[in-house]
Nucleic acid binder design. Structure first.
Lengths: 145, 145
DNA sequence: ACTAAATACATAGCATGTTATGTATTTTAT
DNA sequence: ATAAAATACATAACATGCTATGTATTTAGT
């Protein structure tokens, strides 16, 4: 008796599902003047919060340079503003502009729409199981990186 | 009574899990002279198959221009060769070079390793459920794009 | 007090993927 | 037979994310 072969398609499935979801979000966000990568920033700053880049990178689950370039694009597009922290000149305090705040209000409804479509045909139980298993896999992967 | 709120974190979870998996594969593939995006090409051509770009793009589940640039990089790095189909000069027949064939032999073992780590702590049943649910979500998303 | 380490952010260079569009070539329809 | 549609691939421009590295600024250690 031999060990059952692990499913090799999990990587393909995970990345593909992620990409498809991003594509769907892009479709919905673009007409509203937002992009998929900006979602965590809008979620974190949507109520007028003022946060620094390190926090935002951790919140978004990406590396610091990725957040740096994302924020540079968002600043270019007038969605965020930055101000050097007077207490620690290394830190820049980041917040949404009035335009950013206004646009950000549509994020949650759009996410709800997309999630509803992604979960089409799922029972609430299946939905919860998928979330739980994905969270566990995500943790496993983080641990071995 | 109101409809239960759909889980909004599914998009984040899917994309994050995909990214983490890609990162893990990069760690394992780079020392072997391969990159994560090349996996489907190696899988499709690993036994000496000769296939065209359109087929490879569909197999990889990405758009045609993405495959075009991927193949350009792989050709640059001496992993694949292309030859115009004499029967239809629009088509280019693609195959792995000897070096590509040799490197490609390590793909499956590396995928097995990565899958084992991703599924750490999963029972076989949980594994199968995750696969099934991800496949269903992937199909749902494809349908509404 | 002052050098060394740590921290926050920026930049460079790249891979991967997307949409939009261009260019041959082949097929279809009249 | 030929103009029009379809097909296969390439290219441009961009977003997102990565690693590696640079640059201030702050904190710690002696």
């Amino acid at each position: 008796m031999r060990t059952q072969a692990p499913c090799l398609s999990i990587g393909f499935l995970a990345t593909t599902t992620g990409r498809l979801f991003t594509r769907l979000m892009e479709q919905k966000l673009k007409p509203a003047g937002m992009r998929a990568g900006q979602i965590p920033v809008f979620l974190a700053l949507g109520k007028g919060e003022i946060l620094n880049q390190k926090y935002l990178a951790e919140f978004a689950g990406i590396e610091q340079p990725g957040m740096a370039t994302l924020l540079a694009r968002m600043e270019r597009d007038g969605l965020i503003e930055r101000e050097t922290d007077p207490n620690d000149k290394r830190v820049s305090q980041i917040r949404l502009t009035p335009d950013g705040l206004m646009k950000g209000q549509k994020i949650i409804p759009i996410m709800e729409e997309a999630s509803k479509e992604a979960f089409k045909g799922f029972t609430p139980l299946e939905r919860d199981i998928l979330i739980t298993l994905l969270e566990r896999m995500s943790s496993s992967l983080e641990r071995c990186l």
